[in-house]
């Protein structure tokens, strides 16, 4: 469904020094530099897959999404979505995809959401029967009753997001690009939106590509995760394989009577010690060995070994990647420094 090969996007931005003199200098002679927002990424996504893009701010995930949806012209590399070159924005391509961008409203601010839906119906050439059926379904699942007739600007953030999603999916796209779809929403609403997207994916076998700050969005929705850092992919794999990459295991302990912290610290990093329960971090390879030692040496009432939460695994991988990239850069600089 999606085929991306060595995709690049470089921007030229103007630099400005701080302060009045700095801006005066920039006024006389503007300085520019090239920012490599996306720097050679490749991946394939099959139809029906749900893929999460993770990365810090400015890592390049939104830029990649924009190139996939056809908003940005790549600087280099190739990208194919549903057999189309996105940037040409052919009508048949646009009817197959949708892009939802957080709170950026495609709804008309001063009119009821219903009117925006009508506009989309006409523009996407949706037949009346299909339009009615889709709208009915969406109304049920997203509980849009009573919301559709209110002016958009009078809606709450969550209500607006629901309408936004409905508007974006009215034409039943086959590929969904979702950029921060739950940003600013409360937990209940986040869950609702996630469930809706999952259901849409199941029902229409649609491909879902999602970026989010909320790790929970990604772990709940996506079976595959792509982590980007400084414009490059540092990890691409299923959630399960991610677990394998974790360096530590967590051992949770229940004691039969209190023990001093110092005693526990001999076994590993103590994450938590609260009365009779404790949590310690052990390198993966030694986990079972340490557990049996603990059982033998301490008054243990109960012990469990767990994988750390996916959030911290991804966090680990990202900071690892950052260090690696740094090192590579230093290597390069040293090579360049040699005559």
């Amino acid at each position: 469904m999606i085929h991306v090969q060595d995709l690049q996007k470089h921007y030229t931005v103007s630099e400005k020094e701080a302060g009045f003199l700095g801006s005066l200098r920039a006024f006389v002679r503007p300085k520019t530099k090239v920012v490599k927002a996306v720097d050679g990424v490749s991946f394939d996504i099959a139809a029906g897959e749900r893929v999460g893009f993770l990365g810090a701010n400015g890592a390049g995930k939104t830029t990649t999404l924009k190139m996939l949806s056809g908003l940005l012209h790549p600087t280099g590399g190739s990208v194919q979505v549903a057999g189309f070159t996105p940037f040409q924005r052919k009508t048949d391509f646009l009817k197959k995809i949708t892009l939802v961008m957080g709170q950026k409203q495609q709804l008309i601010w001063d009119l009821p959401a219903q009117d925006s839906f009508l506009v989309n119906q006409a523009i996407f050439e949706i037949g009346d029967l299909e339009f009615k059926a889709t709208l009915k379904e969406f109304t049920e699942i997203l509980e849009l009753d009573g919301i559709l007739k209110k002016q958009v600007r009078k809606l709450s953030l969550g209500e607006r997001m629901k309408c936004e999603l409905a508007a974006a999916l009215l034409h039943r796209p086959k590929v969904l690009f979702l950029d921060e779809p739950t940003i600013g929403l409360d937990v209940n609403m986040q869950v609702r939106i996630r469930e809706f997207i999952a259901e849409y994916n199941r029902r229409f076998e649609a491909t879902v590509i999602l970026t989010s700050h909320y790790m929970a969005d990604v772990t709940a929705l996506c079976e595959r995760i792509i982590v980007v850092e400084k414009g490059q992919i540092v990890l691409d794999g299923g959630i399960d394989s991610l677990m394998q990459r974790a360096q530590n295991k967590i051992i949770k302990l229940e004691f039969s009577h209190l023990i001093p912290r110092a005693q526990l610290e001999r076994y590993g990093t103590v994450q938590e010690l609260d009365g009779l329960s404790a949590q310690i971090l052990i390198p993966r390879a030694q986990a079972s060995q340490v557990a049996s030692r603990l059982l033998g040496e301490l008054p243990i009432a109960d012990v469990t070994i767990e994988d750390p939460p996916i959030e911290s695994i991804i966090g680990e991988i990202m900071s690892e990647a950052r260090v690696n990239q740094q090192n590579q850069r230093i290597d390069l600089e040293m090579m360049e420094a040699k005559p």
Partner: peptide
């Protein structure tokens, strides 16, 4: 005055 002047200096074509 100082901060609003330097904000506008960025738009030299505009000027």
């Amino acid at each position: 005055a100082g901060s609003s002047v330097s904000a506008q200096m960025e738009y030299r074509a505009n000027f």
